[in-house]
Design a protein around this nucleic acid. Structure first.
Lengths: 187, 187
DNA sequence: TTGTTAGCGAACACTTTGTTCTCTTTTATT
DNA sequence: AATAAAAGAGAACAAAGTGTTCGCTAACAA
């Protein structure tokens, strides 16, 4: 690949992320993005069709590998199958969010978080579902599986939001303990 | 009050709601709204400062009385204090959503649902919190109260979304049963 | 070195926004 | 019924943003 393309793409992503932490998505103009990224107008539209397209690309870039690595972890360790497993998938996920990708947490706490949340939630839902089908389950026949999957992934996302809004005072391990406390009783 | 004002306001709300069920909020123009509402441009801006302002007003109008009536119900019946209470607050809330205000469900399922969700979630959080302070609680000292409150209201909202996305095949009573099954074990 | 590709910058047609004006209609009040 | 006040219509407006096109330059891979 051409180095110029990668540089341009990275510059646009960086500028866009920086702007997102300042103001809401809808109030950011393409002009501001290209000014901050220091690229030409034509260049921007050569890379992305619209501002929405850029947002989508950013989401994919950010959540892509986080969820993928969680997927791997889930396939080896299972969801919460072995009791008191020191490293659960969710704990890993939280650590990943905290350490490797501070950008993600910034974007999840920004004014336009809804857009990112939708991606996060959808990805997570797939992860939980894949674990449910692997694990041949027995309890809770009275409660639909779809409801449980949604409840678990939904609760997790809500917890992350609560965590961010509270300025992340808890460690991933603590959060994981809380989460297990509200999730394991129903599994 | 002047009848004209009310009519205009109602017409704008109706037009806006109709448009929201067709396309996403960001793609709706003021021009489309005033065309659909059949009011003058000047009139629109006499009522609402911006499109965002209109959205906010619509949210307040829709969620205002639903949450208020749930608040009343919560103060008399409690949250889930008396076991097997046939009418819980959440059940009432679901029924309210289903019967009285089909508009709300339409808006929650539209492309711009995130905006409404934020309102819904915030309102609900206040409701649950008000119940927690009334109820002098004893269990779960290890889990922060804030986390539990967020978990309950967050899970409820996620459930409503799941319900809507699945075309509302369950009755409010069924949903309430599911919800109790995942919430009561941790109370 | 050379053909190819990416980027620049200016100009553009177009859409949307929010305001300002004048004029007409409806309303509440007496 | 008469009238002043308020609400709306409609056109016109500047300002800002969008997405595209053009010709030109610089960087790249071979």
């Amino acid at each position: 690949m051409d180095r110029r393309q990668q540089k341009t793409r990275a510059a646009i992503f960086a500028a866009f992320s920086a702007l997102l932490s300042e103001k809401s998505y809808s109030k950011i103009t393409v002009q501001e993005i290209i000014d901050a990224a220091d690229v030409g107008r034509t260049t921007f539209y050569a890379h992305f069709e619209t501002k929405d397209d850029l947002l989508k690309a950013l989401c994919e870039e950010l959540f892509g590998h986080v969820i993928n690595s969680a997927m791997d972890s889930a396939h080896t360790h299972g969801l919460y199958s072995d009791q008191d497993a020191p490293e659960s998938v969710f704990c890993h996920l939280l650590q990943h969010l905290q350490e490797n990708d501070k950008n993600i947490l910034a974007l999840l706490s920004c004014e336009s978080s809804e857009v990112f949340l939708r991606y996060f939630k959808d990805s997570l839902n797939g992860l939980v579902r894949s674990q449910f089908v692997n694990q041949n389950r027995r309890h809770n026949e009275k409660i639909p599986e779809g409801f449980l999957i949604n409840h678990i992934s939904g609760s997790f996302v809500e917890m992350v939001l609560w965590w961010i809004r509270g300025r992340r005072k808890q460690t991933p391990a603590e959060l994981d303990r809380y989460f297990r406390a509200v999730i394991e009783p129903i599994l």
